[in-house]
Amino acid sequence: MNAPPLVLDGVAVARGGVPVLEGVTVRADPGTALILRGPNGAGKTTLLRTIAGLQAPIAGEIAPGPDQVAYGAHADGMKGGLTVAENLAFWAGIHGTGGIGEALDAFGLARLSERAAQHLSAGQARRLGLARLLLTGRPVWLLDEPTVSLDAEGVGLFGQVVRAHLGRGGIAAIATHVDLGIAGVPLDLAGFRARSVPAEGALAWDV
């Protein structure tokens, strides 16, 4: 995997029309992880969604583009009515990749592959959602609180997968409160809290 570095330059993001972060400037080279920290409401999810291309930044530049980025949110798009293998096969097809077997093995889901996703436990479902990332074939992973509802074994497996991804020259930006045993560049969002006037105010609504 030959990925370009993940570069944020003076990025400002808004949530529901209210700016939450501004001037976020950071760089992560291939093979490194970016650990996003900050209290609830600091804008971790909003920043990740912006990098994923789901919303536009109100200022600043983000590289690379969304086509290099895989977003792993809590809402992971897995259908309860489909089996584990079918869910992964759908996303592999959408991304034009393969490797479903490897993804199942990496998260210890192989023996569950024929089970309907709605009958998985919360932790198993989480593993399934994370397994999707391996099928995107994209170098930059964005992970929003990935270890919620995972047991110790699950956290361990997840750490292995991320380290392997970094070892292949990938990049990961992880918003988390727990120590995943992954060395990375910390990024504390508390320092980038937006202070300027909302974009709305700049539109000359003062009449």
Binding site: G17, V18, P19, A194, R195, V197, P198, E200, G201, L203, W205, D206, V207
Partner: peptide
Amino acid sequence: EIRARRLHALRLRERM
């Protein structure tokens, strides 16, 4: 409507 938008903008500013 413009005044309503201004109110909206002011409220957002207040939340900031």
